[in-house]
């Protein structure tokens, strides 16, 4: 049984201009100790999904259906009190993009980590202090610096502190939403390395949300590519990167220049991501898809298995793709 199982999750936002189906029937699994990367462009619903799992959706957003099972227990039907007590932070914690700027500037970082431990767990203060120091050491910050204030740290160090806080209650799963987007490449590399090391050491499960396919390639075991609120391709990173089946995934991979390989042209997909207030009928990708045909305009494709290794794709044209033609050749 998977550690975290999301089934048919639907998250809709009520806005002045109508209903936005930000997450539309998304299903995924994370096994113990595995890392799942959620890839997608802005507005594809990847952050909304994470927020729904942690019940941190803004007021106008609501879960309209689906299941989120943690170790076989449905955490969506829990009441808020129970969820806060037993799930959030204790079992599932989060590292978000802006978190490093959310550190309280008037408390020392050590104090903030200890506070997080004491809020969620029934331990003595000295125990919490000891664990706080261990955590800082684990993320590569000298415990002696726990007496320093956030402004005395650089961006990368602050992000490390945020990671330490996310780990403070020994969670089973960490959801990392664009954890390195605001950071420079070298710092990004350091942080991702730290996350990877921690994952091995603590046997953590990770859900890593990013628009950057190279981050997922470097850190995750599985990948789910989202587009317009749906998962359009799902599988192990080796399968998806090596043999992408969905035109969008293929295009996305070709949009990323690889500095360490021979130079290949960067492709660009026409158009832009769909407006979820009035999404196109049928397959949401059809207005940009070079393979779009009659059925794509009418029927939304199911996420179907195309490979015994649980590689699944939501496309009507997977047969055509098998021939290995370069569909984005411009």
């Amino acid at each position: 049984m998977a550690l975290l199982e999301v089934k048919d999750l639907k998250v809709y936002y009520k806005t002045l201009r109508g209903c936005v189906k930000a997450v539309d029937s998304v299903s995924l699994n994370i096994e113990k100790g595995r890392a799942l990367g959620i890839a997608g462009e802005s507005g594809c619903g990847k952050t909304s999904m994470a927020m729904a799992i942690l019940r941190l959706l803004p007021v106008n957003g609501k879960v309209y259906g689906g299941l989120v099972m943690l170790d076989g227990v449905d955490i969506l039907s829990m009441d808020d009190e129970e969820f806060r007590e037993s799930v959030r932070w204790k079992r599932i914690s989060m590292i978000s993009q802006g978190a490093m700027n959310a550190l309280n500037p008037v408390h020392t970082v050590g104090e903030q980590i200890i506070e997080a431990i004491l809020t969620h767990e029934d331990v003595t203060r000295s125990e919490a202090v000891r664990r706080g120091n261990d955590l800082l050491e684990m993320v590569g910050i000298h415990p002696g610096r726990s007496k320093d204030y956030p402004h005395e740290f650089s961006g990368g160090m602050k992000q490390r502190i945020v990671i330490a806080m996310a780990l403070s209650c020994n969670p089973d799963i960490v959801i990392a939403d664009e954890p390195t987007t605001a950071l420079d490449v070298m710092v990004q590399s350091q942080i991702l390395k730290a996350i990877g090391d921690l994952r091995n050491a603590l046997d953590l499960s990770l859900m890593l949300i990013t628009h950057d396919l190279s981050i997922i390639a470097q850190t995750c075991d599985d990948i789910a590519v989202m587009y317009g609120g749906k998962i359009i391709e799902y599988g192990s990173v080796v399968n998806v990167y090596g043999n992408p089946k969905h035109p969008y995934s293929i295009g996305l991979l070709k949009s990323f220049p690889n500095i360490k390989a021979e130079k290949a042209p960067i492709i660009s997909m026409p158009g832009s991501p769909p407006d979820l207030l009035s999404p196109p009928a049928g397959c949401k990708f059809h207005p940009r898809c070079p393979l779009a045909k009659g059925i794509c305009l009418e029927k939304e494709p199911e996420l179907a298995k195309v490979h015994p290794d649980n590689h699944r794709v939501a496309c009507h044209n997977t047969d055509m793709l098998k021939k290995g033609t370069d569909i984005w050749n411009q």
Binding site: S189, S214, Q218
Partner: peptide
Amino acid sequence: LIEAVLVPDPKKRGF
């Protein structure tokens, strides 16, 4: 700087 650039290829892993 070049080392730090991540590669979108799961077969060539490593920071």
